[in-house]
Amino acid sequence: MTMLPPPSPKKLGLVIDLDICVGCHACAVACKEWNDGGQFGPLPDENPYGKEPLSVWFNRVHTYEVETQDNGKPPMTVHFPRSCLHCETPDCVTVCPTGASYKRAEDGIVLVDEDKCIGCQLCAWACPYGAREFSEQRGVMQKCTLCIDRIYNETLDEIDRQPACVMACPTRARHFGDLGDADSAVSKLVAERGGYDLMPEMGYKPVNKYLPPRERRDGCPSKVATPQEEKVDFSTASPLLRWMDKLLSR
């Protein structure tokens, strides 16, 4: 059923802290590893060791350079993980002709039913965030499941019931929780740090939020900018060294 469900009180999603992401791609690799063997896998690699490998990933990490307004400061480098934002009103769900693309009424997770998907790829065309990647080998669309087979998995310890990308992040730049609950840790983080939506002008109301990088400190421009000539004072050195200096300076 590709009609959107009424807005759910529970909105599961991610909060990504661009201030501390170091761009190590651990989230992307952990995602690929879990989902390749998980319920929504495999994530096939076409020609993996060949000239032009092609492969499905649910999470991709970009790197941007931001020119700061203040000319004295060096540009900011920002690492930027990009995955499905589990939007509240996404077109990727409503364009689906088969009912394969759907948004769960209970927690807002956007999923693809791979047994119904005909591989028309219209949902990928409708997504401005590039969250969906078509698998040529399987003939169906694949996307982030918010690790639904982890977060509700009662065979895992409670502490492990989080998306693989969140578990893997070595800097804790990724947080998982209920963004529909104003008292949840993630909602508080978003409120405190001014978390924002990507491309709000598209009107899809993403659930996932990004925390802005903090302004960089001044750095030490004098140290970096002007390398000074090295000067050594031999006047206080031993006579042998003074003689050596004289000899070598000739």
Partner: peptide
């Protein structure tokens, strides 16, 4: 990217 608040953004 939401990074326009700081200045021009360039993919590196």
């Amino acid at each position: 990217t939401g990074l326009g608040r700081y200045g021009a953004v360039r993919s590196v």
